[in-house]
C-alpha cells in the first residue's frame, strides 16, 4: 500500500482515535453506563471546551513546570552523558551508580522533595527533572561511546584537540541518540510533574484532576486527561520536527535529500 506521510502520520492516527471514540460512545449509550463511572466521549469533549478557561491556567502551569524540569535534566543529562561516554573510567565507575539511582521509583521521592522545597511548583520541577534524566544520560553516553574510531581518526590525524574531536565528531554523531532520548524524556517528564502536582500542589493539571475526582466530577477529570494526552502528542511532534531538521542525515531512507 502506498500512502503519503501526511496520511500515515496525521490522518490515520486521527481516524483511528475517532473510531475508538465512536465505539466508546456507542458502548456507553448501549449499556447505559453512568457518567460517574465512565463519561461519554461527547460529554468529555463538551466539558473540555466549556471548562477550558478554568483548565488552561492549570495546563499552562504544568507545561511550564515540565519544560523547566526537562531543560534542567537535559543540561545535567548531557553533561554526565558526555562525561561517561568519553571516559572509560567514568563509564565503569559511574554507570552502576546511575543504575542504582534509576531503580528508585521517583514517585517515592516526591514527599522528600516536598519537605525540601515545600508543596507546589518546586517538587513538580524536580520530579520532572529526575524522572527524565536517565534516558538522556544513557543515550548520550551510548552515542559517544559507540562513535566509530575511524571517524575520530580523521581528526586525530589533523592533530585536533579533544574538544575539536568532541565538537566535530562525537557531538553530531550523538544527536540522533539525544533526540531519541528527548522524545521519550519529554513524555515521562509530564508524568513526573503531573504526579507531583496531584500529590502536593494546589496548581497544575494534576491538581485539577485530583480536585475533579474528589468532587465526583468525572467528565472534568477525563477532560483533564484528554488535555494532557493532547499536550503530550503536541510536544512529541515538536521534537520529531526538530529531530528531522537536525539529524536528517541519520534518516536518509525515509526522506530523500537534495
Amino acid at each position: 500500500m502506498t500512502s503519503s506521510p501526511f496520511v500515515r502520520r496525521v490522518l490515520a492516527p486521527l481516524l483511528i482515535t475517532l473510531a475508538g471514540f465512536i465505539l466508546w460512545e456507542i458502548a456507553c449509550r448501549a449499556f447505559g453506563i453512568s457518567s460517574f463511572v465512565l463519561p461519554k466521549p461527547s460529554a468529555i469533549i463538551v466539558t473540555m471546551v466549556e471548562r477550558f478557561p478554568a483548565l488552561w491556567p492549570n495546563l499552562w502551569q504544568t507545561i511550564l513546570t515540565t519544560l523547566i524540569g526537562f531543560a534542567l535534566s537535559l543540561v545535567i543529562g548531557i553533561f554526565f552523558g558526555a562525561l561517561i561516554g568519553m571516559s572509560r573510567f567514568a563509564y565503569d565507575s559511574l554507570y552502576p551508580i546511575l543504575v542504582a539511582i534509576s531503580s528508585i521509583p521517583k514517585v517515592a521521592l516526591i514527599p522528600i522533595f516536598v519537605v525540601w522545597l515545600g508543596a507546589g511548583t518546586g517538587p513538580a520541577i524536580l520530579t520532572a527533572c529526575v524522572i527524565s534524566f536517565f534516558p538522556i544520560v544513557v543515550n548520550v553516553a551510548t552515542g559517544l561511546a559507540t562513535t566509530e574510531p575511524e571517524l575520530e581518526d580523521v581528526l586525530h590525524a589533523l592533530k585536533a584537540s579533544r574538544f575539536d574531536i568532541f565538537w566535530n565528531v562525537g557531538l553530531p554523531r550523538t544527536m540522533p541518540y539525544l533526540f531519541a532520548a528527548m522524545k521519550v524524556a519529554i513524555s515521562i517528564a509530564f508524568i513526573g510533574s503531573i504526579t507531583s502536582e496531584a500529590i502536593a500542589s494546589n496548581r497544575g493539571i494534576g491538581n485539577a484532576m485530583l480536585v475533579a475526582t474528589t468532587n465526583f466530577d468525572m467528565p472534568l477529570a477525563f477532560a483533564a486527561l484528554l488535555l494532557i494526552s493532547i499536550t503530550g502528542v503536541v510536544f512529541y511532534f515538536l521534537f520529531v520536527m526538530l529531530e528531522n531538521r537536525m539529524t536528517g542525515w541519520a534518516q536518509r531512507n525515509k526522506n530523500a535529500r537534495p
Partner: peptide, 24 residues
C-alpha cells in the same frame, strides 16, 4: 591523510567534509 576506506562524516556535505581540515 587519505585512509584506505574513505571516512567521510555522514552528517556533513561533501563540501563541508573536505573543508574539515581547514576548520581545525
Amino acid at each position: 591523510l587519505a585512509f584506505q576506506n574513505p571516512t567521510m562524516l555522514p552528517w556533513l556535505t561533501i563540501e563541508r567534509n573536505i573543508m574539515l581540515p581547514l576548520k581545525v
